[in-house]
């Protein structure tokens, strides 16, 4: 009698498998990106007033001939579908259009602001992920004891705190009362610092914004990590490990931890957009010259070209984060590489 079937061949190269998996996921996100652009473009057609109106409001009015010329210049007299087509075509060429308000290409406006937001996001994400994982593990290991109670309570409190308020209260305590940290801004303007000194200065300025943006996510991650650890510890293979005589500590590090991380990794990807949204508020609280603040300003100033550019960049950013998250997930979980999800 034949023994149960042969062992299926492994992928010759795990890296290739990872990459092909992630690329497949990336391909799936392209329709979403297109949908977003079309949707947002259509949405903005409904907006009262266009770029020219906004420009005129800034200039204090103009005569009808001039207005018509401006509309033609910005291509606003064509039908919406044609405008959309033109816009997408320009996007393919990495041209985001021209911001009438700032008087320069949208790409340039965004480029100036992007690094601040990226820095803030990366810092907050690290803080939230590392802190959440560590605290979640501690809470799960000490479940139903005082350590767990303290961590879970603090987590719940931060989860319920509005970010802008947390930021303001941080300013009151650490900037105004204690004077330890600056109340806002990206760096000391006109200080002429360079190199390491400048990096330190920026770090100093970003401590409060990072904590403000990160703490909510930290509280979410710690709750998920705790629940996930507890869930995994009830699974059969953990019992198998016990039956092998593996000590408790090794059971956590070798068997529970990696399995428990999987739902968290998924969540980080899902939260990329939320975090970018949070940046709008946090940058506004701390007057940081980032993408979020730019989005806020373009809403106020009706700078629709810039707004559309921000939407595009944000979506690309979120897709990029998810790409990295997918790679990480596939690295952690051998099953996903084959299944392709």
């Amino acid at each position: 009698m034949a023994a149960s079937g042969p062992v299926p061949a492994l992928f010759p190269d795990v890296t290739m498998a990872l990459l092909s998996f992630a690329l497949r996921r990336l391909a799936v996100s392209l329709p979403s990106l297109l949908l977003i652009l079309i949707g947002v473009f259509a949405l903005l057609q409904l907006a009262p007033g266009d770029t020219v109106d906004a420009l005129l409001a800034q200039m204090g009015g103009g005569d009808p001939v001039q207005i018509q010329q401006l509309r033609t210049f910005y291509g606003l007299d064509a039908p919406a579908a044609v405008q959309l087509g033109r816009y997408l075509w320009r996007l393919v060429q990495f041209d985001l259009g021209f911001s009438a308000i700032y008087g320069k290409p949208v790409a340039a406006v965004i480029a100036e602001r992007l690094s601040v937001t990226l820095l803030l996001m990366v810092a907050s994400l690290w803080f939230a992920a590392v802190g959440g994982v560590v605290l979640g593990i501690i809470a799960a290991r000490k479940v139903h004891r005082w350590q767990d109670a303290v961590i879970s309570t603090v987590g719940l409190l931060f989860y319920a705190t509005p970010a802008f308020w947390l930021g303001l209260m941080g300013v009151v305590v650490f900037a105004i009362k204690l004077g330890w940290l600056p109340a806002g801004g990206f760096e000391e303007i006109g200080s002429g610092k360079t190199g390491l000194l400048r990096a330190l200065d920026i770090t100093h300025h970003l401590v409060l914004p990072t904590l403000t943006l990160g703490l909510i996510f930290l509280s979410i991650y710690l709750r998920i990590m705790r629940a996930s650890m507890l869930e995994v510890s009830t699974l059969d293979f953990v019992r198998t490990a016990r039956a092998k005589g593996v000590p408790d500590g090794a059971i956590v590090t070798r068997h529970i931890l990696r399995n428990a991380l999987l739902p968290l990794v998924t969540l980080v990807g899902l939260h990329a957009g939320t975090m970018l949204g949070g940046a709008v508020v946090v940058e506004s609280v701390f007057t940081l010259p980032g993408l979020g603040r730019l989005a806020y300003e373009s809403v106020i100033q009706r700078d629709l070209n810039t707004l559309l550019g921000i939407v595009f960049i944000s979506a690309v950013l979120v897709i990029a984060v998810n790409f990295v998250v997918d790679l990480l997930y596939a690295r952690l979980d051998p099953r996903i590489r084959v299944k392709g999800h």
Binding site: P31, L33, L44, L46, L276, R302, A315
Partner: peptide, 23 residues
């Protein structure tokens, strides 16, 4: 699901700003 993806890819606070700006 592609539509849902689109909504989840666009930061929801940004979409909220857009909707408020328009409506």
């Amino acid at each position: 699901m592609r539509v849902t993806d689109a909504f989840q890819t666009l930061p929801n606070f940004l979409l909220l700003l857009l909707l408020i700006a328009v409506f």
